[in-house]
Design a binder for these strands. Structure first.
Length: 811
RNA sequence: GCAGCCGUGGCGGAAUUGGCAGACGCACCAGACUUAGGAUCUGGCGCCUUCGGGUGUGGGAGUUCGACUCUCCCCGGCUGUACCA
């Protein structure tokens, strides 16, 4: 016998499908633009339809957004609450490689399963607006946006060091590499040089940074984006090379004031100057070092981090401030991907340079007072020494003076550097959007005419990549090659777009999913505007959320959208952990399957339990007993309304119980406020308190009991609809008005004041809640225990905080 | 290392313009109903206690009539990031 059967449950297994069918057939949640109503756009991060189906983590965010959507509808808002599928991506392609099943087949099957599961939860999505990123009518517009970027000069092809993942047979973006391994699949990656399409996200670096300030997002996510963009003010400085009049080494530094202390220079092993300036007698050592560095994965480099290695090139640079000859080394602690890939080393005032200088016996010159350079580099502030025209200045003044001097001398200037790199946009995969560009035999690039979009993904027989750095599309010669009207042969781009492309703008497509003249119908865009509330996982902090902001700003500049930021408010739901407090995973065997939970306890129990577990944004362990507690609560609600004979409880009548009235108004007040603050766990607590009070009351006032159903229905919509119907209500529950409360009736008539004497609560005193301070003091003096505690003592202080506490200080 | 978040009963968690610590739920204990209880209802439930009370929100100090809440130092955990010049 199942747990549910044992507990004589209310008939969730019958009523849940019944109401899901009702919502679908009556199109209850279909939304249309209505200028008469204020709009509210509440969005979930759409799922990747994996073969595993939904896990219990998905409904956490989806239930939270559903509660907010249902609440806003009852508050009179016109709510846009859509769902869709981010369906391009690697798992379907990997599965195709293993089984030969076309990714489209797998994807369609998984979407059907996800749809079935999502509908079982009773989420109030507008199912007429579903989008699917793999639908040609959808990716037509993904390609269109790409072409706009191309026309704006934000797309370029470059031979750059890229992350290559041998297991995934593809290059990856910086953002997709975590700790030297692929974000998807956790495979090793290495750096190779490859010609790739890049998007110039760096052109938007400042705007992406500044835009964060006005967003209502978790501070941690904003901080992560700020760190990722990594804006850093400094100067670039040109060092002439001794015996190479035509070549310079350009460096970026935040400490131009320490230039007099620069005693050597370091190039990254991949730096293009390395080959040109290395002197013949050092060539062998340099080549060996560069080869070794290239073989090291990034992981190796960081694991070995503390040991500084490097070799001397034999070349010398000239310090622009004093013409001093300083040696040029190469070392892998200088990264080709940051700044100019070269540094001026100031071992006196930079710990990394200090360690390197110590290891190789290089000169260390202090140029600031303070610290002890025999022990370590001094990175703090101080007065300059050994620095000619900077002597006696502090750090900030010296930086300013030096930058001016560099500019005057024409060998440097103030500049801003970013950690953010341009976005590597090519993928060597089949299951993605084809890049709508082609080339002629000479390598000239052309964009496909927008009228001809979508550029369809061609059919293939095999999904294996066509050799290193080539996508499976390169195998299809009659797709790649085509004859133009001029009779010349042209060659299509065979790489595809990364998965982020489709998810970059899906929230706009929901506004007019069937519109075929533009990616979004402009009147719909103006009506729905920004996403008011966006809910999803924190793992997208710097991937999806940064890329989407970038594209959105481009679209804003093009006049396609009317706001320059896409998501006004963001909430990250916390992870749901296994019962053991660990992250759920198949290997740990602690995965909870939502299908089984729904079968045993019903979707309403699961929804409500996940909201009751704790604060929405915190990680929380699953508890089957806790789920049972919520299920019991729903049973208790059911029995308050429906008696053993399936009749409405005769206690529900038009008589008003005074105590219960206060409880009701308190409940409406608290639940309303806590929904606004997205604190569902405490909102549910207050509903429990009200139901507990109902069990103690003799009469249940019918209008209040109807209002409670409305409130319940945003959390547990199926039981809400069923009770609403059984109570004989004819209105559509989902659009009935949210209950109002009377603030005066939400207060207790009497307040039990704690009387605190010298920091300890000694007794309590009941006083009317209307009482003002003088009344309270009087009541206190009349209290029997007052004399006992104050006798023979001097009253130093008597503090009365109305409605809170009375404090006495005695001596 | 750096940044952000967090530390409250046996467990999940309440309480923040500073005002009764432990709401609500789970687990547990007792009672009622019962052939039975893993259903339901009622009550209890931080720790210590000589039953007066004492003590208690990771540890220590401070501000205050009053600190889970504010300030400083330390310890522990989670997440992100990592030679970023």
């Amino acid at each position: 016998m199942s747990d549910a059967a044992k507990t004589r449950s209310y008939p969730f297994a019958e009523i849940e499908p019944k109401w899901q069918k009702f919502w679908e057939e009556e199109q209850i949640f279909k939304s249309t633009e209505d200028p008469a109503k204020p709009k509210y756009y509440i969005l979930d991060m759409f799922p990747y339809p994996s073969g595993n189906g939904l896990h219990v983590g998905h409904p956490e965010g989806y239930t939270a957004s559903d509660i907010l959507a249902r609440y806003r509808r009852m508050k009179g808002y016109n709510v846009l609450h859509p769902i869709g599928f981010d369906a391009f991506g690697l798992p379907a392609e990997t599965y195709a490689l293993q089984t030969g099943t076309h990714p489209r087949i797998t994807t369609e099957k998984n979407i059907r399963n996800f749809t079935r599961q999502l509908k079982m939860f009773g989420f109030s999505y507008d199912w007429s607006r579903v989008v699917n990123t793999t639908d040609p009518e959808y990716y037509r517009w993904t390609q269109w946006i790409f072409l706009q970027l191309y026309k704006q000069g934000l797309v370029y092809e470059a031979e750059t060091p890229v992350w290559w993942c041998e297991d995934l047979k593809s290059v990856l973006a910086n953002e997709e590499v975590v700790n030297g391994r692929s974000e998807r699949g956790d495979y090793p990656v290495k750096r190779i040089m490859l010609k790739q399409w890049m998007l110039k996200i760096t052109a938007y670096a400042d705007r992406l940074l500044e835009g964060l300030d006005k967003l209502d997002w978790p501070e941690s996510i904003k901080e992560m984006q700020r760190n990722w963009i990594g804006r850093s003010e400094g100067a670039k400085i040109c060092f002439a090379l001794d015996e190479h009049n035509d070549r310079f080494i350009e460096v970026f530094t935040t400490r131009s004031d320490t230039l007099f202390g620069a005693t050597y220079m370091v190039l990254a092993p991949e730096h293009p100057l390395v080959k040109r300036i290395t002197v013949p007698e050092r060539r062998k050592a340099v080549d060996e070092y560069c080869e070794k560095a290239a073989l090291k994965s990034d992981l190796d480099r960081t694991e070995l981090s503390k040991e500084k290695t490097g070799v001397f090139t034999g070349a010398y640079a000239l310090n622009p401030v004093n013409g001093k000859k300083i040696p040029v080394w190469i070392a892998d602690y200088v990264l080709i991907s940051y700044g100019t890939g070269a540094i001026m080393a100031v071992p006196g005032h930079d710990q990394r340079d200090w360690e390197f200088a110590k290891a190789f016996g290089l000169e260390i010159i202090p140029v600031l007072e303070g610290g002890n350079i025999r022990e370590s580099a001094f990175e703090g502030d101080g007065l300059h020494i050994n620095s000619a025209f900077l002597d006696g200045l502090s750090k900030d003044d010296a930086i300013r003076k030096m930058n001016t001097w560099l500019k005057d001398q024409g060998c440097g200037e103030r500049t801003i550097n970013y950690k953010l790199r341009d976005w590597l946009f090519s993928r060597q995969r089949y299951w993605g959007e084809p890049i709508p560009l082609y080339k002629d035999a000479d390598g000239n690039v052309y964009a496909i005419n927008e009228e001809k979009l979508p550029l369809l993904l061609p059919e293939v027989d095999k999904f294996e990549p066509a050799g290193a750095g080539q996508s499976p599309l390169a195998n299809i010669r009659d797709w790649v090659e085509f004859k133009g009207k001029d009779g010349k042969t042209y060659y299509r781009e065979t790489h595809t777009m990364p998965q982020w492309a489709g998810s970059n703008w899906y929230y706009l497509r929901y506004m007019s999913p069937d519109y075929d003249k533009a990616l979004v119908y402009s009147a719909a865009e103006r009506y729905w505007g920004q996403v008011d509330f966006y809910i999803g996982g924190a793992e997208h902090a710097v991937l999806h959320l940064l890329y989407a902001r970038f594209w959105h700003k481009v679209l804003y500049d093009l006049g396609v959208v009317s706001h320059d930021e896409p998501f006004q408010k963001l909430l990250n739901q916390g992870l749901i952990l296994g019962t053991d407090g660990e992250k759920m995973s198949k290997s740990r065997g602690n995965v909870v399957n939502p299908d089984e939970v729904i079968k045993e306890y019903g979707a309403d129990s699961l929804r409500m339990y996940e909201m009751f577990m704790g604060p929405i944004d915190r990680a929380k362990p699953w508890s089957t007993e806790g789920l049972g507690g919520i299920h019991r609560f729903l049973n208790r609600i059911w029995r308050i309304y429906v008696d053993e004979n399936e009749e409405i409880n005769p206690q529900i009548c038009n008589k008003l119980d005074n105590t219960l009235e206060i409880s009701f108004h308190k409940m409406v007040k608290t639940v309303t406020e806590h929904i606004e603050q997205v604190r569902f766990n405490t909102a549910i607590s207050q509903m429990m308190i009200f139901i507990n009070d109902c069990y103690k009351a003799e009469f249940l006032y019918r209008p209040h009991m109807l209002d409670f159903i409305k409130i319940l229905s945003v959390f547990a919509p199926h039981i809400g609809e069923e009770l609403w119907q059984r109570m004989g209500s004819k209105d559509v529950l989902s659009y009935s008005a949210w209950p109002l409360y009377d603030p005066e009736k939400a207060k207790d008539e009497m307040i039990e004041y704690p009387v605190q004497i010298n920091g300890k609560v000694r007794f309590k005193i009941n006083i009317s809640s209307e009482a003002v301070e003088t009344d309270i003091r009087e009541a206190l003096k009349d209290h029997e225990k007052y004399a006992f505690y104050t006798e023979g003592k001097q009253i130093l202080k008597c503090i009365v905080i109305p409605r809170k506490i009375i404090t006495l200080v005695l001596k």
